[in-house]
């Protein structure tokens, strides 16, 4: 019953967001016909009519949307105005770079963020805690394109440890090339995750069941792992999921700076060239990516805390 409601809500979200995306493109300034024909000298009335018919531009708005939506359901997102190539193929060729970048950044911010959070929670009120809080706060306040430029100038140009741009060949080459972009992408998230981890753990530490665990002689390491950190996982996982979902749609700047041919740079390119089908498809991908991640988090949460499923089940 809960799953059904969930599914219904997802479908509704998709319908509404696809409609908004399509309507946004429809309302965007400029006549697609002009971009499709390109050279003003070819603008004969016959040519215009032919192009309008081919792209269904002669139809009323609602039926245009329905045609687009129907094709989407069959896995066809139309073809790019610019590349004359199927949009799904185009996305398929750009997705791996973006997904591997986000996955890399995800591993970085989860591992480092949680680690820093645990350390500062356990050293609450000490110089170490203050240092971690200070450095991570500073890191969040720098925009990621600045971070990216600094990383490039220090590690790629001066020290020559990494290349300046490009996604790299093969698995290891990819990891090597994506290191700086992933750091630039993850830096702000590390601060947020470490803060959430610290805060939740500090709250958990003062709870009765943690003192009870101490009262029966559990070592402090086991108390932290089995009680404090274990019970903090819910908020940590939720926060990491939200950040990850945002990242899937937020690689535009970092991809641009590092010259990566991912979804983000494709989006900028498509907007500049008025390649509407590509823009629509990417925006829809971002909505779906966000939904998938949040649904995953919702599925994981009851496994971490059984009280949640009891509440939502009733």
């Amino acid at each position: 019953m809960v799953a059904l409601r969930r599914l219904g809500a997802m479908v509704l979200t998709l319908v509404i967001s696809s409609f908004v995306i399509f309507a946004g493109m429809y309302a965007a300034p400029g006549d697609p016909v002009a971009f499709l024909i390109g050279n003003p000298e070819n603008m004969t009335p016959e040519r215009i009519a032919a192009v309008r018919a081919e792209y269904h531009l002669d139809q009323p708005f609602l039926s245009q949307y329905l045609i687009w939506a129907k094709d989407l359901l069959h896995g066809d997102a139309g073809s790019s105005f610019v590349y004359q190539q199927s949009v799904t193929d185009l996305l398929g060729s750009r997705l791996p770079v973006t997904l591997s970048l986000v996955a890399y950044a995800g591993v970085l911010f989860v591992v480092i963020g949680v680690l820093l959070g645990v350390v500062s929670a356990l050293r609450k009120g000490t110089a170490v805690d203050a240092l971690i809080t200070g450095v991570t706060t500073f890191a969040t306040s720098i925009p990621n394109f600045v971070v990216a430029v600094v990383l490039i100038s220090v590690f790629a140009v001066k020290l020559r440890w990494f290349s300046v741009s490009g996604p790299g060949e093969g698995f290891l080459g990819r990891i090597h090339h994506l290191t700086l972009p992933a750091i630039a992408l993850a830096l702000g998230a590390i601060a947020v995750v470490s803060r959430v981890t610290r805060q939740t753990m500090v709250e958990q530490q003062s709870l009765d069941h943690v003192e009870a665990a101490r009262s029966y002689g559990l070592t402090s390491r086991k108390t932290v792992v089995r009680h404090v950190l274990r019970n903090s996982l819910g908020p940590i996982v939720t926060m990491c999921g939200l950040i990850l979902a945002g990242m899937l749609a937020g690689t535009v700047v970092v991809e641009g700076v590092f010259g990566l041919n991912g979804i983000g740079s494709l989006l900028v390119e498509a907007i500049n060239t008025h390649d509407f089908p590509v823009v629509q498809a990417i925006l829809l991908y971002m909505v779906i990516a966000y939904m998938v991640v949040t649904v995953l988090v919702d599925l994981i949460y009851p496994l971490l805390d059984a009280r949640v499923s009891a509440r939502s089940g009733s």
């Binding site: 709870l207 009765d208 069941h209 003192e211 009870a212 665990a213 009262s215 029966y216 002689g217 559990l218 086991k222 089995r226 009680h227 274990r230 019970n231 819910g234 971490l304 805390d305 059984a306 009280r307």
Partner: peptide, 27 residues
Amino acid sequence: MIFQAPRTALNPVRRIGDSATERLVQV
């Protein structure tokens, strides 16, 4: 020690069996 409020003295996200045997198994 038997704590005053049993509901807060047990870890809310762990099963009774795990909590109640924790001292025997882990300690």
